[in-house]
Design a protein around this nucleic acid. Structure first.
Length: 580
RNA sequence: GGCAGCGUAGCUCAGUGGUAGAGCAGGGGAAUCAUAAUCCCUUGGUCGGGGGUUCAAAUCCCUCCGCUGCUACCA
C-alpha cells in the first residue's frame, strides 16, 4: 500500500437530473467521503472532489419539461444536490459543475491536443432526426415495433421485451419517444471519433499492472471491453447543451456540435479542482494534484477514484485514452488513476431503485425520516462490494437498532451516566489500570490496526464490521469490570474502570468519525473534545486510553440513536412500496 | 443471442485446495450501570443441481438451472 502523503480522491459525478437515491449514494459519493475523512484524520494532504454531471440529452429534456432553460435547470438542481451532500456530511473540498467555464476550457484543450496528436478523426454517421421535435434523437428515444417479437414499445437500442439489441432502423413504425411524431428520418451527421482501438495494448498493460490491487469487478469489466475488441468512440453529439467543439478542430466541420457527456465528465474532475483553486485563491496549485510525479517525489499524489460499475468502462477505457493520448505531448504528464474502487448495485428488495416508478429511498426523503448517520452506517455496513446488496426496511431497522442504538449508543450512555451519578461527572482520579486494562489495550491494538488496514484497503463492509467489534469489546470490558459492583467494596477499582470506560468512549468517537461524523462529534462532546477534524489514534492503545485528564468534566449524552419502532417500519414499507 | 457478476444457516454476508464461519433472528443463563440496552452459552447448512480432477473441493474443470447487469448514441 502506498505511503503517499498527498491523496486526490474523486467520486463519480452524480447526474444533474433530480435527487439521487441511496444506491447512487453508496455507489460512489459516500465511500469517497469516508476515505477522504480517513485520510484527513491520518494527517495526509487530502483533496476530495466531486461535481454534478450536467450535459447530455436527459438534462435538455428535463429542462424542457420543467419549462426552464437548461442553464437555469442545472443551476437549480446543482444547488439541490449540493445541499443534500452537505446534509449527508459529504465533505467535498469542492463540489463543482461539469458546465463550468473551467471545464469548457479544459475539455476543449484536451480535444485540441488529441486532434493535434492524431487521435481524433471525423466520420460521418447516420443519426435519427425528428422533424416535429426539431432535434436529433439518441437511439433509445426512438420507439417502434420490434421486428423480432412484435412488442410495440421497443426502444431503438434494445427491445425491453425480448432483450435483443436493435438499431433504430430495425423498428417497424418508428416514432419519437418525446412527441410520438412519426416524421423521423435518417440524416448524415459528421462527428469526431476518439481512436481508442490504437490504445488497446497500452490499456491492457496498464490494467494488468493493477489487476492484483483493484476489485475483480473493475478489472473484469475492463478486460471484457478489451477482449471484445476496443472500438473507436464518437465523442461529439448533435445537441445544443454541452461544451462546443472549437472551430479550429477539423476546419470547423463540426460547428454547432458539442462534446459527448462522457468525454467532458471525467475531465470535469480536473476542472472542478481548478474551480476549487480559483475559488480559494490557490492559483496554479490545482496542477500539482494532476501532475504525474517522479518516483519517490515527496509531493507525488496518489489518485483514488470511486464509482459504481456502470461507470467503470468510461474510467478504465475512455478517460485513460484521453490522458494517454494527451500525454504524448503534454508536459508534465497528466495524472492517471492509481486505485479504482468500483461498486455493484444496491437494490431495493432485490429490484431496481427507480426514479420514474418512485421505487426506493431517495436522499431527500431519507433525511426527512432519520439523520444522515443512520443511513451512512447502514449503507457502509452493507456496501455492495462483492455483489449487489439488497436494502430492506427490516434489515435497515435491525442494523440501526442493534449496532448504533444498542451496542454503541447505549455504551456511551451507560458509561457517561454512571460517571455523572457516582463520580460527580468528572473523569475519576482514583485507582490504577491493572491486568484487565493491559489485556484490553493489547486486544484493541490488534483490532484498531485491522480496522485501519480495512479502511486503507477500501474494504468498507469489513471495516464497519471491525468497528462494531471494537464497540463490543468495550461492552465486554465493562461487564467484566462491573464498576457498579466494585463500587460497593473497592471504590478505587471502580474509578479506574470508569476512567477506562470514558477513554473508550473517546476512542470510539475518534474511530467512528469517518463513518458517522456528526454522531462522532456528539460522542466526543461528552468527554469535552471538539475538534473540526478528528485525528486518527496513532498511539498504542495503552497510551491513548490514558489520555483523558482526571477531573475533566463529562457531559452525559442524550439518546444518541433513537430506535426505529416496528410501526415506523410498517409505515415506511407502505409508503415506499415495492416490497412485494 | 453474446458476455460479466452472483447463488454458502431463517435473513444479510465472509470464506479460492486441508475438520463449514460472522452478525442478526431463534433457545437457555448471568448481570442490574444503561435507550428492556449489555455479557456468556447455544440450536441451525448434503456451500443452486449433476458430473469430473485430486489423498483432499464451497474453492479447480465441464454441464444444467436461477437471479442481476452490460451489450459501445441513457448516463
Amino acid at each position: 500500500m502506498s505511503t503517499a502523503q498527498r491523496v486526490l480522491i474523486t467520486s463519480a459525478l452524480p447526474y444533474i437530473n433530480g435527487v439521487k437515491h441511496l444506491g447512487n449514494l453508496i455507489g460512489s459519493q459516500l465511500p469517497a467521503d469516508v476515505y477522504g475523512r480517513f485520510c484527513r484524520a491520518l494527517g495526509r494532504d487530502t483533496l476530495l472532489i466531486c461535481a454534478t454531471d450536467e450535459h447530455g440529452t436527459p438534462a435538455e429534456l428535463a429542462a424542457l419539461e420543467a419549462g426552464q432553460s437548461v442553464e437555469a435547470y442545472c443551476t437549480e438542481w446543482h444547488g439541490v444536490q449540493k445541499d443534500l451532500c452537505d446534509r449527508f456530511g459529504l465533505s467535498w473540498d469542492h463540489f463543482g459543475r461539469s458546465s463550468s467555464r473551467q471545464n469548457k476550457e479544459l475539455t476543449q484543450h484536451f480535444a485540441r491536443v488529441l486532434w493535434h496528436n492524431g487521435h481524433l478523426e471525423v466520420r460521418t454517421t447516420r443519426q435519427v432526426y425528428s422533424g416535429t421535435d426539431g432535434r436529433f434523437l439518441p437511439d433509445r428515444y426512438v420507439i417502434g415495433t420490434c421486428p423480432h417479437c412484435g412488442y410495440d414499445r421497443a426502444r431503438g437500442d434494445q427491445c425491453e421485451n425480448c432483450t435483443r439489441v436493435l438499431d433504430p432502423t430495425d423498428l417497424i413504425n418508428p416514432r419519437s419517444a418525446l412527441s410520438g411524431a412519426a416524421d423521423i428520418e435518417i440524416r448524415d451527421s459528421a462527428h469526431l471519433f476518439l481512436k481508442q482501438s490504437a490504445f488497446a495494448g497500452r490499456l491492457r498493460e496498464w490494467i494488468d499492472s493493477h489487476k492484483n490491487e483493484w476489485p475483480n469487478l473493475v478489472t473484469s469489466i475492463a478486460y471484457k471491453w478489451l477482449d471484445e475488441g476496443l472500438q473507436d468512440r464518437g465523442i461529439t453529439r448533435d445537441l445544443s447543451w454541452g461544451v462546443p467543439v472549437p472551430d479550429d478542430i477539423a476546419d470547423g466541420k463540426l460547428k454547432g456540435k458539442v462534446f459527448y457527456v462522457w468525454f467532458d465528465a471525467p475531465i470535469a474532475y480536473i476542472a472542478a479542482t481548478k474551480e476549487w483553486a480559483d475559488a480559494n485563491g490557490k492559483g496554479e496549485a490545482w496542477r500539482s494534484w494532476w501532475t504525474e510525479g517522479k518516483a519517490n517525489d515527496p509531493l507525488s499524489v496518489r489518485y483514488v477514484e470511486f464509482m459504481a460499475k456502470d461507470n467503470v468502462p468510461f474510467h478504465t477505457v475512455g478517460f485513460p485514452c484521453t490522458l494517454f493520448g494527451a500525454n504524448e505531448t503534454e508536459q508534465p504528464a497528466w495524472k492517471v488513476v492509481d486505485h479504482l474502487k468500483g461498486f455493484n448495485w444496491l437494490t431495493y428488495y432485490g429490484g431496481k431503485f427507480s426514479t420514474s416508478q418512485k421505487r426506493g429511498v431517495f436522499m431527500d426523503t431519507a433525511l426527512e425520516l432519520l439523520p444522515a448517520d443512520y443511513w451512512r452506517y447502514y449503507l457502509l455496513a452493507n456496501a455492495p462490494e462483492s455483489a449487489d446488496s439488497s436494502f430492506t426496511w427490516e434489515h435497515f431497522a435491525g442494523t440501526v437498532n442493534k449496532d448504533l442504538a444498542d451496542v454503541l449508543g447505549n455504551f456511551v450512555n451507560r458509561v457517561t451516566k454512571f460517571c455523572a451519578a457516582r463520580f460527580d461527572g468528572k473523569v475519576p482520579d482514583d485507582g490504577r489500570y491493572g491486568d484487565e486494562e493491559v489485556k484490553l489495550a493489547s486486544d484493541l491494538d490488534v483490532r484498531v490496526k485491522q480496522y485501519t488496514d480495512y479502511l486503507e484497503a477500501l474494504e468498507f463492509r469489513k471495516a464497519v464490521a471491525e468497528l462494531r467489534a471494537i464497540w463490543v469489546v468495550g461492552n465486554e470490558y465493562l461487564t467484566r469490570a462491573a464498576p457498579w459492583t466494585e463500587l460497593k467494596t473497592d471504590r478505587a477499582r471502580a474509578a479506574a474502570s470508569v476512567r477506562m470506560g470514558l477513554n473508550l468512549v473517546r476512542l470510539f468517537g475518534h474511530l467512528a468519525w469517518p463513518i458517522i461524523p456528526s454522531s462522532a462529534v456528539k460522542i466526543l462532546a461528552t468527554v469535552s473534545e471538539t475538534p473540526a477534524i478528528v485525528p486518527w489514534p496513532h498511539a498504542k492503545m495503552g497510551a491513548f486510553l490514558s489520555e483523558l485528564i482526571p477531573g475533566a468534566p463529562i457531559q452525559p449524552a442524550d439518546v444518541l440513536f433513537a430506535k426505529i419502532a416496528d410501526e415506523q417500519i410498517a409505515e415506511w414499507q407502505t409508503r415506499f412500496g415495492g416490497t412485494e
